[in-house]
């Protein structure tokens, strides 16, 4: 389904937020929301970032659109580093990169009708005449499942699911190449969520879209993605194809995350790995591996040395000492056998 051509490449992206310590004090600490992550998204595929709240998945999505200016790193879109562009230059690229947000209640201006909402992007980017814009509005509205009379209504007259359809139409009307979906179906009920997911999958095929899908819902991610990256405390811990990640997870964090999903088969009691404690404070991350405080397979090396994020199998990247073969000592190997 996907060609092997990266449309978007994120390299060593970092986003640190300064932490202010009072009115006159200089900010000393930084919250490391995104800490050195790299990934590629191929044309027409769905790449997902999954993780718990506070792991930096949304900040990553926003940084790609420069809604947050990244601290350092590169974002290469079609061969060009978009972080080097001036604001004016970047504007023309915004058409290609669109975003859909979680809350369809706060992301639509309540004083504009659906028609105005959908026409606004076309007019601000000077894409076509008003008359042409009107025609396009009706076309896209029908595509996302709205009826023609509904187009002249206001957002408050719609339910959550329908509002999300409007948000989708608004982001697709500029014919983008990449759409970033930040928890786009998380606020919806199960039966509505299924409708919107089907719509997104259909639209992806029709318009040849590339999705960056950001979600905390592991079931939804499994359904839509070609490849998945698991984030924890601002870093990618594991990345591989969806099937491999869900069937043969390597990182202890991924394993426990998957085992924590409540299963809908009450007769099958599965072995659960229950993690202790909470996600550590990102302004004061633990030394070594960020996951070591909660890891069931922790050993001495984890607190001393930060594991290298590397490809351990083809297209399967992990940051964990358990899979680090190059400089593994015999002692560690023994420990590993003990734990597996």
């Amino acid at each position: 389904m996907s060609t092997q051509q990266p449309i978007l490449r994120v390299a060593n992206l970092k986003k640190y937020f300064p932490q202010k310590l009072g009115l006159f004090k200089r900010s000393k600490n930084h919250v490391r929301a995104v800490d050195d992550i790299s990934f590629e998204i191929y044309e027409e595929e769905t790449f997902s970032l999954v993780g718990e709240s506070g792991c930096g998945k949304s900040t990553t999505g926003r940084s790609i659109l420069r809604l947050h200016e990244p601290t350092s790193g590169e974002i290469i879109y079609q061969g060009k580093n978009i972080l080097e562009f001036s604001k004016g230059e970047f504007r023309s690229y915004r058409k290609d990169l669109q975003m859909i947000f979680q809350d369809p209640y706060s992301s639509l201006n309540p004083r504009m009708t659906v028609k105005q909402l959908l026409m606004e992007p076309l007019l601000t980017h000077h894409i076509c005449s008003k008359k042409e814009a009107e025609k396009r509005v009706y076309d896209i509205a029908v595509k996302v499942g709205l009826t023609k009379p509904q187009v002249s209504k206001y957002p408050h007259e719609f339910s959550g699911g329908q509002r999300q359809r409007i948000s989708i139409a608004r982001s697709l009307i500029l014919n983008p190449k990449v759409v970033i979906l930040d928890e786009a179906v998380s606020a919806l009920d199960v039966s509505i969520q299924a409708q919107i997911l089907n719509l997104l999958i259909d639209l992806q095929e029709e318009f040849k879209l590339t999705y960056l899908f950001i979600s905390h819902d592991l079931n939804v991610v499994q359904h839509v993605s070609d490849r998945v990256g698991v984030m924890y405390l601002g870093q990618i811990m594991e990345m591989s194809s969806t099937d491999e990640l869900y069937n043969k997870p390597l990182h202890p964090y991924t394993q426990s995350l998957l085992s924590a999903i409540p299963s809908t088969k009450p007769r099958e009691k599965k072995e659960r790995i229950i993690l202790k404690g909470d996600v550590p404070d990102p302004s004061n991350p633990p030394s070594g591996c960020p996951f070591r405080l909660r890891c069931p397979k922790v050993h001495e090396r984890c607190s001393v040395e930060k594991p290298v994020y590397q490809e351990v199998k083809q297209n399967h990247w992990v940051a964990c000492h358990l899979y680090d073969e190059r400089n593994q000592t015999d002692k560690d190997k023994k420990l590993e056998e003990q734990f597996i």
């Binding site: 905390h216 409540p262 202790k276």
Partner: peptide, 11 residues
């Protein structure tokens, strides 16, 4: 709550 914390609380 997040899934890992949800598992703790339900347990």
């Amino acid at each position: 709550l997040d899934v890992t914390i949800q598992a703790q609380i339900l347990d």
